[in-house]
Design a protein around this nucleic acid. Structure first.
Length: 296
DNA sequence: TACAAGGATGCTC
DNA sequence: GAGCATCCTTGTA
């Protein structure tokens, strides 16, 4: 099949497709053989295990000029320019928003240049999970973010002939979003759009190790994305149920960079909270149901 | 078979 | 030492 075009994503009002990937919806637009634009469908969602809807916002609808209005060519040109700019802003916002979410999930910096080997490894594990790739992370061992950014597409292919180009494109779009679009003008636009990233409302990455109970709360506070795997039974009392133990464990493993994480280990950690008075079993004990001792 | 409880040990920060 | 991660035994539904 086709590969996503690398470099700054090509954006035009009539060719925007936001792709449904598990937790992210990235606009990938690629050139077809005849020079036109077509969608590259990279959707490899774990339909059952992952949220029904991605974390991304709904697909933007570019303003459309009614042909019946037939504006003068000059006006039409300006309108198209404005339209293009608007759509570009929306797409930029979408990508940045999704990068931000991934940064929070992985606890890494947005700029790959700042990643150390462990950050790169976490990003690779997450990408594996996102696109259900085989263990590509082992093929990119011991690389810092700087190393990764200095690699060409050919270098990526050399390490993985099958998925190198895809990984390169994935990284390239990420970098384009973080570096290429982070001009003062674009940041102003993104601020106007109400995106949380870089506007001071939510710190992107604090590099503080997260506690399991905090992570569980995080998931519970995003029912739109995670209610299929964990949800409140009684929010006021802090009682929650793990609906998909394997999935929650997998998410925790990704967050902590522990690929071997499973529910057996996660539940052991939860039980450590019994003594500390952070989490307990509810008065009427039920399988996979726990209670925060101090519900907020 | 999956979950629950908790002891023991090792690792990282 | 805190906070897990890992491995383990025993028990339950």
């Amino acid at each position: 099949g086709m590969r996503p075009t690398v470099g700054v994503p090509i954006i035009a009002p009539d060719c925007i497709f936001l792709l449904g990937v598990p937790d992210l919806s990235w606009p990938l637009v690629c050139l077809t053989g005849n020079g036109g634009l077509a969608r590259e469908d990279l959707s490899m969602a774990e339909a059952a295990a992952l949220p029904a809807q991605g974390l991304g916002s709904p697909e933007p609808s570019p303003p459309i000029l009614s042909p019946a209005q037939n504006p003068p060519i000059e006006v039409q040109g300006k309108a198209e320019e404005y339209c293009l700019e608007q759509v570009q802003s929306m797409v930029v916002g979408e990508v940045l928003s999704d990068v931000n979410k991934a940064c929070k999930l992985l606890n890494i910096a947005p700029d790959p240049q700042e990643w150390n080997c462990m950050h790169v490894y976490k990003w690779l594990l997450w990408t594996e999970h996102l696109y259900r790739l085989p263990q590509i992370s082992t093929l990119f061992k011991e690389l810092s973010g700087r190393d990764l950014c200095s690699m060409t597409e050919a270098d990526f292919r050399e390490r993985s002939s099958q998925f190198g180009d895809m990984l390169y494109a994935h990284l390239d779009i990420w970098r384009s979003a973080v570096i290429g679009f982070s001009t003062p003008a674009n940041l102003v636009k993104i601020k106007r759009m109400g995106k949380g990233w870089m506007d001071g409302t939510e710190p992107c990455c604090d590099y503080q190790p997260i506690h399991l109970w905090q992570f569980l709360r995080e998931l519970l506070h995003k029912p739109h994305n995670y209610s299929r795997c964990i949800r409140w039974i009684n929010k006021e009392k802090g009682i929650f149920k793990i609906e998909d133990s394997a999935h929650v464990a997998r998410l925790w493993g990704i967050r902590k960079n522990r690929p071997a994480m499973n529910y057996d280990k996660l539940s052991r950690s939860i039980r450590q909270y019994y003594k500390k008075g952070i989490i307990r079993k509810p008065d009427v004990s039920r399988r996979l149901v726990y209670q925060f001792v101090n519900p907020i």
